[in-house]
Amino acid sequence: MAAPVSPRPKRIKFSGHTADDGLFGPDSVTWRISALPQLGLAAHGAAMLQMLLPPVMHMIDQASTFRTNPASRAELTALFGRTLTYGDTAAANRAAEVLAKIHHRVTATDPVSARTYHADEPDLLLWVHNTLQWMVLRVTDSYGPALSDANKSTYLNEQVIAARLTGCTVDDVPTTEKDLSAYIEGMTPRLAMGSDTIWFKKMVFPARIVWRPATYLPHMMGVAVAGLLNYEQRQLYGVDRPAWQFETNRKILKGIFEAEARKVPVLSRISLERQKVDEKAFGSPH
């Protein structure tokens, strides 16, 4: 279903960040699925997977505010994704330029080889991009909306635009689910749980769960993210459960997401996302 251009609220001027339909537009698969609440699981799951690649984890540990201020760091990541997806062309390009400058500026040192490297190394950028796309497809398979093979291919080809803007070597970016899965599988021997991954694991998988209403849904979301990882990835984190627990948790959450979708239809969600970009865009001085 194609999403129309969202109506611009009267209080928001045309000098905002959605003056045009941006990189993807209302006919894209990207627009249709990115505003859905279950896609938040893809971002969390991708982060979990990304941290299993030691150079990425070293970078986050040494040069990021994630450890000391995770909420702010996550908010900035979400802001970048929203701007790239729903912002106008100028805002999306500006966001990518600002991110590229940040990535080139920050460095980390490998604790074994003592090699210092930048965050914009092509293989690291490709890993970050591909883990997110792999998780998006796993989320839509598990929680909906179900995508046909053709729509999956369309989505991955659309995301080549994002890959190019974030510094990936375009020729290396998978554009089919088969190639994407082969890439993830091929990276498995390089994944590891290092000493600097322990704090991250404790942050996202607290050892003790307090069963009260305020923590029940976050716990379910954590179990859902673990369920999106494959067996080998979960084993590296040392977190696993019987398959029936993951499936029970998935069914409950799927019902919650479907109820949310009925309450706020996708076209309304897209309008809200575009309004948020008009109010604040990544890398914009306004």
Rank of each mutant, 00 (worst) to 15 (best):
F282H: 10
W31G: 05
D27R: 14
L49W: 02
G255Y: 03
K251Y: 06
R32T: 02
W244D: 06
E247G: 00
G283N: 06
K201E: 06
M59N: 03
I102A: 13
I184S: 01
T131H: 06
G255S: 13
Q275M: 11
M221N: 02
S28L: 09
A19W: 00
R212W: 09
E75W: 03
H104D: 15
I256K: 12
R105M: 11
P111R: 07
M135I: 02
P54M: 01
G40T: 07
E258M: 12
P213F: 02
L52C: 09
T116R: 15
R190C: 08
P189D: 03
V56A: 10
T65H: 10
N151V: 01
S34C: 05
G22A: 08
G222D: 02
P206F: 05
D149L: 11
Q233G: 07
A163I: 09
E279Y: 04
H219G: 01
E185Q: 12
G25V: 04
S153E: 14
D240E: 13
F205R: 08
T116H: 03
K10I: 10
S284W: 10
I184T: 03
P9R: 01
I252V: 15
W31V: 10
L125A: 08
I252N: 04
Y237D: 07
T154H: 12
A261W: 01
V204T: 11
S34D: 13
D172W: 04
D61V: 00
I198M: 08
V264M: 13
G25Q: 03
P9V: 04
S64K: 12
A150N: 09
R94H: 10
I33M: 06
L191F: 13
T109V: 14
H58T: 11
S153I: 00
P55Y: 03
N151Y: 01
K13Q: 10
R73T: 03
N93F: 07
T188I: 13
F200L: 14
E97G: 14
R67M: 11
L132S: 11
G45V: 07
N249S: 11
K254V: 02
A92W: 02
L76W: 08
K202T: 05
V112M: 08
L132M: 14
Q233Y: 03
R115E: 15
R8H: 08
S181H: 11
L253F: 09
A281Y: 09
I270K: 11
G22M: 04
G40A: 09
S34K: 05
A162I: 01
